[in-house]
C-alpha cells in the first residue's frame, strides 16, 4: 500500500512517516500544503492520503478542500483527515458523496499508535474511521428524528458503526456478545426503516442516516 502524507508541521510529518512505514505502508511523497499534496497524488496515485486539515496558506480548511478534490479526481483514493478540532460539517461534506475510504480523526489520536494504525488500515481498505468526538458532535445535532427512537445502547452501537468498527470490535468495546450486537444492529435497521438488502450496504445506510443533515 502506498501513501502520501500532507502535514505542515515537520515534526509530526516525520513521526507520521515512521508510523506508516512501521505499519507496512510505503510513503510515496510528503507534502507541506494543499497544492503540493494534489500534485503528489496526481503523480504517485497512492492508495491512501493522510491530510492535515489546517495547512498553509490560510490555516483553516485547506485539507478538507484538498480531500474533496482528491475524492472527485481520483475516486479510488482513501483519505484520512487529521484535525486539531472537530468541525462536523467537514465530516458531513466528506461523507456526502461516498462513505467508504474516509477517515476523520483528531490529531492527538496519532499518539495511540496501534489504534491509529488500525484506523489507517481500515480507511485504506475502503472502510470508515470517524473520531468518537466527531460522532458525539454529529449525534448532538440529531435529536428530533428517527434516531430519537433508538435506545441508548443502540445509539452506542450505531456510534461505533459510524466510527467504522466491525461487529466483533463493537462487541468488545461494549462488553457484550457478538450476537447481542447483531440483534441491536437489526433493531437499528428496523427503527430507521432501512430496506432489506445486503448487510454491509444497510450498515452504510444506517451510518449515513445517522450523519445526514449535518
Amino acid at each position: 500500500m502506498r501513501a502520501v502524507i500532507a502535514e505542515d508541521s515537520l515534526l509530526l510529518r516525520i513521526g507520521l512517516v515512521k508510523v506508516l512505514e512501521a505499519a507496512g505502508f510505503e510513503v510515496a511523497a510528503e507534502a507541506g500544503d494543499a497544492d503540493e499534496v494534489l500534485a503528489a497524488v496526481g503523480e504517485h496515485r497512492p492508495d491512501l492520503v493522510l491530510l492535515d486539515v489546517r495547512m498553509p496558506p490560510s490555516f483553516t480548511d485547506e485539507g478538507v478542500r484538498a480531500a474533496l478534490v482528491i475524492r472527485a479526481q481520483w475516486p479510488g483514493t482513501a483519505v484520512l483527515l487529521l484535525s486539531q478540532y472537530v468541525e462536523e460539517r467537514y465530516a458531513a461534506d466528506l461523507l456526502a458523496t461516498q462513505t467508504g475510504g474516509i477517515g476523520y480523526l483528531l490529531k492527538q489520536r496519532v499518539a495511540d499508535v496501534e489504534e491509529f494504525v488500525d484506523a489507517v488500515r481500515r480507511v485504506a481498505a475502503g472502510g470508515t474511521a470517524l473520531d468518537p468526538q466527531v460522532v458525539a458532535q454529529l449525534l448532538l445535532r440529531r435529536q428530533a428524528d428517527p434516531l430519537e427512537r433508538l435506545t441508548p445502547r443502540e445509539k452506542d452501537v450505531l456510534r461505533l458503526m459510524a466510527e467504522g468498527r466491525s461487529n466483533t470490535a463493537i462487541a468488545e468495546q461494549l462488553v457484550v456478545s457478538d450476537s447481542a450486537v447483531s440483534k441491536h444492529i437489526n433493531s437499528i435497521f428496523t427503527k430507521l426503516g432501512l430496506p432489506q438488502a445486503e448487510a454491509d450496504h444497510r450498515r452504510v445506510l444506517a451510518v449515513l442516516r445517522f450523519l445526514e443533515g449535518a
Binding site: 508541521s9 509530526l12 513521526g15 508510523v19 499518539a111 499508535v113
Partner: peptide
Amino acid sequence: HDGAQQRLVSLAMNLGLARA
C-alpha cells in the same frame, strides 16, 4: 498549538511507536 502541542503529540507518537 504551533509549539508545545505539536511537540507533545510527536513525543507521544514516538513513545507509542516504541511501545508498538
